[in-house]
Design a protein around this nucleic acid. Structure first.
Lengths: 201, 201
DNA sequence: CCTACCGATCGGTAGG
DNA sequence: CCTACCGATCGGTAGG
């Protein structure tokens, strides 16, 4: 059952994905949904609560659309690569309303300390931890040679984020392929001989 | 001689670096400088012109503070590495008011097509071209093996941008070192045997 | 969940 | 370069 609050948060994620969490005004959100401002406001009690709950909702959608589907892949290198690749494909799939949410919001608030930045940083920290876990699995399974796990996770994330960013900035999907190639090359440089080749999906 | 307009643009760059070009309001800018709103407004004629001229001013400062000083280094690999390293050090040097400007503004407008995004994308395109030129110089000089120049430039830029971004998001300067190490490793993986080692400044 | 309102601020204009 | 203003919109509140 879809509650009114769910409907509000769905629109909130869509608006914030396009225009940022500051561009998300209560009045405009109310108009979009066909409610009064005070009606929307009452569900949250402050703009900041609306922003925090919008972040939580976007995180749930992100996990449902990107993180969870990849869990069907065998653990280790294949799953790590599938996750990176899924994240990049995600940027061009318009059926996911939150597809630009974290690219937009993480950058919007990275230089603005406060509860919003902390909430976004928390979501991304958990995402980075998952990438590190996948890397560690791959090392344990003998698919990747010994490596600095945090360093590798940083480099993979850098190419994922830059893929999305440059794709938007120049309206050029080639940026996503560059990111994919960069990630693949980096993983292959660490691959143990005999590991099955990664599929370029 | 410093004109009034220069003083306005200096403050505009500082404000936009911290809060984005949308957070840059004419009223607040006027207050900061001790002028009337209409006085500031008259220098530009529209908010959009103010934004565009602020971008141009930030670009001029960026070149003066990062790009030009590196030109004293010998061309090729050393200069390329010096440029990447200078860009990363720049993020923590508070004497440069524009140090966060392009990290902030490029991300703010990447999903918002229009003249502002185009202006920012133009500055970054020229920056990327310069990196590609340095890579080509290094190849010509026999310091780097044959490589896909655009791909390598993308990967270097990805780590530079992610270095700034993660540094801000987590208040953690280690991100800048990660970026530096990632870039250095990538360059060394392509280095021709016999090329003098790069200094980790 | 609504109407009706508050003070503050926005970009922009008139007139000097 | 100023004062004084415009209509629109902001987050938030009162009262129902």
């Amino acid at each position: 059952m879809t509650t009114t609050k769910d409907r509000i948060l769905e629109r909130a994620v869509a608006i914030a994905s396009a225009e940022g969490l500051d561009g998300l005004s209560i009045g405009r959100l109310a108009d979009d949904i066909g409610m009064s401002k005070a009606g929307v406001y009452g569900h949250f009690g402050s703009k900041e609560r609306l922003q925090i709950e919008t972040i939580d909702h976007a995180r749930d959608l992100f996990y449902r659309h990107v993180v969870v589907p990849v869990e069907t892949r065998e653990p280790g290198l294949a799953r790590l690569w599938a996750l990176c690749s899924a994240y990049l494909s995600y940027a061009v799939d318009s059926s996911f309303p939150e597809r630009d949410f974290f690219s937009t919001v993480a950058n919007e608030f990275d230089t603005q300390p406060g509860p919003i930045r902390d909430a976004v940083a928390g979501v991304i920290a958990i995402w980075m931890q998952r990438i590190e876990d996948h890397i560690e699995d791959a090392v344990q399974l003998g698919q990747l040679g010994d490596c600095d796990v945090e360093q590798l996770a940083f480099e993979l994330e850098a190419m994922m984020v830059a893929g999305h960013h440059v794709y938007h900035l120049n309206d050029d999907p080639a940026a996503l392929d560059r990111a994919r190639r960069g990630i693949l090359a980096r993983l292959e440089s660490l691959e143990t001989p005999g590991t099955p080749a990664l599929e370029v999906a």
